[in-house]
Design a protein around this nucleic acid. Structure first.
Length: 508
RNA sequence: GGUCGGGUGGCCGAGUGGCUAGGCUCAGGUCUGCAAAACCUGCUACCGCGGUUCGAGUCCGCGUCCGACCUCCA
């Protein structure tokens, strides 16, 4: 716990004090999606995790250039050899449309989903096809430096040469070249490679391959790993602060990225590598294959999660509930998505939002003194900040907020005395909640009618009228009318809460 | 087989040497016309076996189970 930001660096496998290259500014590159199909829910978790990291860095006052690419060429099915097919190309062939149509369609869908999850847009979102020139230049540099060789129009990275120069190849993933040799299966066109662990950085296009560009070596297309090296270098420089991505990208993608950067400029791209862990469902990896016993597949699309139209869940959950659910675990831990866990998250999310509403309406006492409670509250606020500094420990910071919610409810209930908290502390608490919930965690309060244009005011006015009518019925002991009003509202998913100081309402 | 990471109370999930995580569920209570909400109280766990230590979910060793990557998958 300290005021200093520490991050877990995958490269060294330990927490390190974060020091940006240029004071006050941060360059961050995160591997974006390959847009050949609808966005995967696990992918959403990764980007929500990095969204919180991005938001927190901004909150700390850093100027952040956040680069997240769109992979629209080069990601192959199968090994990166000429026998395999580009994912985008394949989809275009199957759907009989232009590759760029495939890309546009799924990129739009991806952007929509990112908006639904309330993630901030990156500063730059470069596309691989828009940087073919840069990639060809990088291939040439790597060849010139002797780290790559051309064979039959394709260019391969010489992993053996790099591995011979210390720990430069395999450092991130903990792999050594001898192991790679043993593990590698029978691959097509292996004879073009000098070593099985070598990987393609330029691939000669097969006749049926639609996406192709001219290059000094052949009409072809860049290897998948190359785009991230080229684009991160272009927008963040040869050495930048943070590189992130899903855990599963560590090898081969990120390892090869590092290799390419060494090969082209003998420099290590990022100082800190951050990797998010996987999202599981019912304790297992999500998989579209159907279980022969149950007849259902262990997978769910984001839309299905919202609508509830999936056998793995009992009802739909709002995007903010899902985001809250994701925030309750650390980004480096696996997260198990189950119906029960989502239901729990939904309740917790509402408790947090309700707590904040009560807090914001809280009036400080005029004759208050800083008692024990004042200190407790200040300590909890400090802890929440410290937790975020400790490798972005959002779940722990969240726990601190819930402890504060407990205090807030106590104040509302009269169980705790507001005289024990100074007006300054109340103001600080209000600001802290708004900052954490909306700015850092990126949640939105969807328990309110969020239509804007005074829609909420209208609804609230109506509700106050209904509550008044019910109140007079209650005073006349007309329980039938009072309960009819309550039950009817419940059907409309509006809950009435009878308290000591009158009745409040909220949307479920 | 190799590499990496895990096994925490009914469920989810923090926590790296001694101090209540938190959310949800469940049980009892306060309040309430009844209910809900809110509040209070209770349920006090750390895969197994060794070891280090005054003291270990927390460090070390072995075993065991699970997941990821190595092969398309975030």
């Amino acid at each position: 716990m300290s005021a200093q930001l520490t991050v877990h660096n995958s490269l060294t496998r330990q927490k390190e004090i974060f020091k940006p290259i240029n004071e006050g500014a941060i360059g961050m590159y995160v591997c974006g999606p390959t847009v050949y199909s609808d966005v995967h829910l696990g992918n959403c978790r990764t980007f929500v995790s990095f969204d919180v990291i991005y938001r927190y860095l901004l909150h700390l006052g850093y100027k952040v250039r956040y680069v997240r690419n769109i992979t629209d060429v080069g990601h192959l099915e199968g090994d990166a050899d000429t026998g395999a097919e580009d994912k985008i190309s394949k989809k275009a062939r199957l759907e009989q449309i232009e590759p760029m149509e495939v890309v546009q369609k799924y990129m739009n869908g991806f952007h929509d989903m990112m908006a639904v999850f309330n993630t901030k847009k990156p500063s730059i979102e470069p596309r691989a096809t828009g940087h073919i020139v840069e990639q060809i230049e990088m291939v040439q540099e790597i060849i010139d430096n002797g780290y790559a060789y051309e064979k039959n129009g394709s260019v391969y990275f010489d992993t053996v040469k790099l591995a011979g120069e210390g720990d430069k190849y395999g450092k991130l993933s903990g792999r050594i070249i001898e192991d790679l040799l043993v593990e590698t299966r029978d691959l097509k066109n292996q004879d073009e490679k000098r070593h099985p662990s070598d990987f393609a950085i330029w691939i000669k296009a097969a006749p049926e391959h639609i996406m192709r560009w001219n290059s000094p070596w052949s009409v072809g297309f860049p290897g998948w790993h190359l785009e991230c090296s080229a684009m991160s270098t272009k927008y963040l420089g040869t050495n930048f602060d943070i590189h992130g991505g899903g855990n599963d990208l560590k090898f081969p993608h990120h390892e090869n990225e590092i290799a390419q950067n060494y090969g082209s400029c003998n420099c290590e791209p990022a100082n800190y590598w951050l990797h998010t862990n996987m999202l599981l469902m019912n304790g297992k990896k999500m998989s579209k294959s159907v279980d022969p016993e149950t007849g259902i597949s262990n997978s769910i699309a984001p839309e299905e999660l919202f609508t509830g139209d999936n056998p793995n869940i009992s009802k739909g959950y709002s995007p903010m509930v899902v985001r809250f659910f994701m925030l309750q675990s650390h980004y480096r831990s696996t997260l198990d998505l189950t119906d029960a866990a989502l239901a729990a998250a939904e309740k917790g999310y509402r408790r947090l939002m309700e707590g904040n509403k009560i807090l914001q309406a809280l009036a400080p006492s005029k004759n208050s003194t800083a008692g024990d409670l004042d200190k407790e509250v200040n300590d909890l606020i400090q802890s929440a900040n410290d937790d975020m500094n400790d490798d972005f420990n959002a779940p722990k910071a969240m726990a601190r907020l819930f402890e504060l919610v407990s205090k807030i409810n106590g104040l509302k209930d009269g169980h705790l005395s507001i005289d024990q908290i100074t007006a300054t502390t109340i103001e600080k608490l209000k600001a802290t909640f708004n900052t954490f919930i909306f700015e850092i965690f990126g949640l939105k309060d969807d328990t309110l009618s969020s239509g804007g244009n005074g829609e909420f005011e209208t609804l609230d006015g109506l509700m106050q009228m209904v509550i008044k009518i019910r109140q007079s019925a209650r005073q006349n002991k007309d329980w039938g009318t009072a309960d009819t009003i309550r039950d009817t509202l419940k059907e409309l998913k509006i809950q009435l809460k009878d308290g000591k100081e009158g009745t409040a309402w909220s949307k479920e």
